[in-house]
């Protein structure tokens, strides 16, 4: 399986085999994309050319026998949200509501967009939660046809947040902080499901949330619990996980609360083949989405 991720201007990919229910990594590569590819125009006619330039390196590195391609794209490519829906509505009504909601939100872009929804298990919540993803039809078509032209099978495409979530899902209430270039991304979990995400900030060892997508109340209450933790305290009722070395002021926070934090290394659970060679300066913790995609093949 070839797992490809595009996030924050980086192309990361890994080729792996599943041997005896274990993932064996054959390659693990990260390449910085040139600035013109950081925010491509999803509705441009030339998008397939842009995709070709970006992805050809990964496809060339893929052995001929490998046909499965899985992709994870960040919010520059795929819009991703967690939307509340009234519990009283049945499945058809929910879909009609979501379509209406998205139509209003997208406006003139609505006709050229493809929408995808999936129900989140939300028994304990007062509302139903639905994950919703929007991608330009043109981008989706270009991506699919490019992969097929390369004689590969486009198996899976998901927003990067879902790939990351697969890596750090916790059963109880919990939050996972991911290093995302120079910022930090927080994913909030409850009952084993992703319920909210956003970009937190830190000042004087106090975390605050800016924009939150999903169950805002849950995210705020979890952050409040995290802030209440003192460096010397031993009790903690929430799972706090970090992926990668968090930048800037987060470093001091992480070092003072080591006992409460669990450091997750995305590819530590995978076997590495002998021929694997990592470029100098490659940070393995940046391969969260790639690891998430690979974990999918085990489920």
């Amino acid at each position: 399986m070839l797992a490809i991720s595009i996030r924050s201007g980086w192309l990361r990919y890994a080729h792996a085999d599943v041997v005896d229910e274990a993932i064996v990594l054959n390659s693990l590569i990260a390449t910085k994309l040139s600035k013109e590819f950081h925010r491509p125009d999803m509705r441009s006619v030339d998008l397939s050319v842009v995709l070709g330039v970006i992805l050809q390196e990964a496809l060339r590195a893929c052995p001929d026998y490998e046909k499965e391609i899985s992709l994870s794209l960040d919010e520059r490519w795929v819009d991703f949200q967690i939307i509340p829906v009234d519990k009283k509505l049945n499945a058809e009504e929910q879909e009609a509501y979501l379509n209406w909601f998205m139509e209003r939100r997208l406006g003139s872009l609505w006709p050229s967009s493809s929408l995808f929804f999936s129900q989140v298990e939300s028994n304990a919540s007062e509302q139903n939660w639905v994950v919703a993803s929007v991608m330009a039809k043109n981008a989706l078509h270009s991506l699919r046809s490019f992969v097929e032209t390369a004689r590969k099978n486009p198996v899976w495409l998901e927003p990067s947040t879902l790939s990351m979530a697969r890596l750090v899902t916790t059963d109880g209430p919990g939050v996972s902080f991911f290093k995302d270039h120079r910022s930090v991304r927080a994913l909030f979990f409850y009952g084993g499901t992703l319920r909210a995400f956003g970009y937190p900030q830190i000042r004087n060892s106090q975390i605050s949330m800016g924009a939150i997508t999903g169950d805002k109340d849950l995210a705020v209450s979890i952050i409040r619990m995290v802030n209440a933790l003192q460096p010397g305290s031993t009790m903690s009722s929430i799972d706090i996980r970090t992926v990668g070395e968090l930048p800037g002021k987060w470093r001091a926070y992480v070092s003072s609360r080591k006992r409460h934090l669990e450091k997750i290394s995305p590819i530590s659970g995978f076997k590495k083949s002998r021929r694997i060679k990592l470029k100098k300066g490659t940070d393995e913790s940046d391969f969260s989405e790639v690891a998430g995609l690979l974990l999918r093949s085990l489920t």
């Binding site: 795929v78 499945a91 929910q94 879909e95 979501l98 493809s114 929408l115 995808f116 929804f117 999936s118 129900q119 989140v120 298990e121 994950v131 993803s133 991608m135 989706l140 699919r144 486009p154 198996v155 899976w156 495409l157 998901e158 927003p159 879902l162 979530a165 697969r166 899902t169 084993g192 499901t193 992703l194």
Partner: peptide
């Protein structure tokens, strides 16, 4: 369980 969403799949509601 983390919700699954495959954009290479059917558009609209993707049930299990």
């Amino acid at each position: 369980m983390t919700p699954e969403l495959n954009l290479f799949g059917k558009s609209g509601f993707q049930d299990q």
